[in-house]
Design a protein around this nucleic acid. Structure first.
Lengths: 165, 165
DNA sequence: CGCTACTTTCAGAAATTTGTGAAGTTAAGG
DNA sequence: CCTTAACTTCACAAATTTCTGAAAGTAGCG
């Protein structure tokens, strides 16, 4: 028969998902190429793809892959690993961990807090503006603590739902 | 004495805060003008500023103010109000509510979820990729519920800390 | 009604961002 | 070591975004 053995993934469906999902990320502020690459990784069976595979699937140059991957690695959305043997690289999305990175914008939040703290000081803690900034600052500090607890609850919930191995 | 009555806010400190804070927002993906305007509102005593005041303080054209404010209103970071009498408009940051908007990216999350759901379907719920997407989807659904509870805790915490009026 | 004080829209100039090809770098494997 | 298969960096072209000035609405107020 002409029936292929384990098709399970026609390129067009994959592409549709990748581009659609990437578009949402773009709207959230993620640069286009990183978004597309991230989508492609999410949609891959192993969660890993080589530079060449990405380039071919998305029709982009090696340079574009390189730049986008650097971005993704920096924000901890993917990790890079060397295939033992060859100098070919694999990029991987850490299934359960990538979305934790999302809630984990540590550095970002820290800098917001720093800016707010400066604002409180320079505008005066007793001025209306200073008080508004102080309250905002308190909000972020509060959230920071909460998020950690929330992620712990998620892990428990996930293990119950998807099996605890 | 040459001592002014209630200076309390020298333009340079304000500007330093505004630009610094705006820079952080920009890094988080907010367009520059909206970020600056938002900063200026945060740093104002009443939390409101007119179009003209914004234009002068930030040295930008009325057109820029108009465009940026439209953006901010759309994402619920500021509201616009008409000064009774004149056709002059005031833009306001809702002290306690602006940061709630941040956690409240309803529409955004919904679309992510929709994209993920589509992905699960088109890639197959039983494929490895499909399962990865399903887990991600479950994560967002979980978070959605948690955030609401978290905000409620925040309000209580805030009232305790800043007075409950 | 029409004048005037604002705000919005629009077309285009300027700046920024993005992606490419080509040269440069690194390290595997003979 | 030298060759070669990758990845990365760089300079530039193209596309996009951002802001402006100017024209066009809009609604108070005489």
């Amino acid at each position: 028969m002409t029936e292929p053995k384990a098709v399970e993934r026609d390129p067009e469906s994959v592409s549709r998902f990748v581009e659609h999902f990437a578009a949402q990320l773009v709207e959230a502020g993620v640069p286009r190429m990183p978004a597309r690459i991230f989508g492609a990784l999410l949609a891959s069976d192993t969660g890993t793809l080589t530079s060449a595979e990405l380039g071919e699937q998305l029709q982009i140059s090696p340079a574009a892959v390189s730049g986008a991957v650097r971005y993704l690695a920096q924000v901890h959305l993917v990790s890079r690993e060397r295939e033992p043997g060859s100098r070919r690289e694999r990029y991987r999305v850490h299934s359960n961990q990538w979305y934790e990175a999302l809630t984990n914008r540590e550095a970002l939040i820290k800098r917001w807090e720093e800016a707010l703290r400066e604002g409180v000081t320079s505008l005066g803690a007793d001025t209306p503006a200073g008080m508004r900034l102080a309250e905002t600052l308190a909000f972020f500090e509060f959230i920071e603590g909460e998020v950690e607890a929330m992620m712990e609850r998620w892990r428990i919930h996930r293990d119950r739902t998807f099996g605890r191995d």
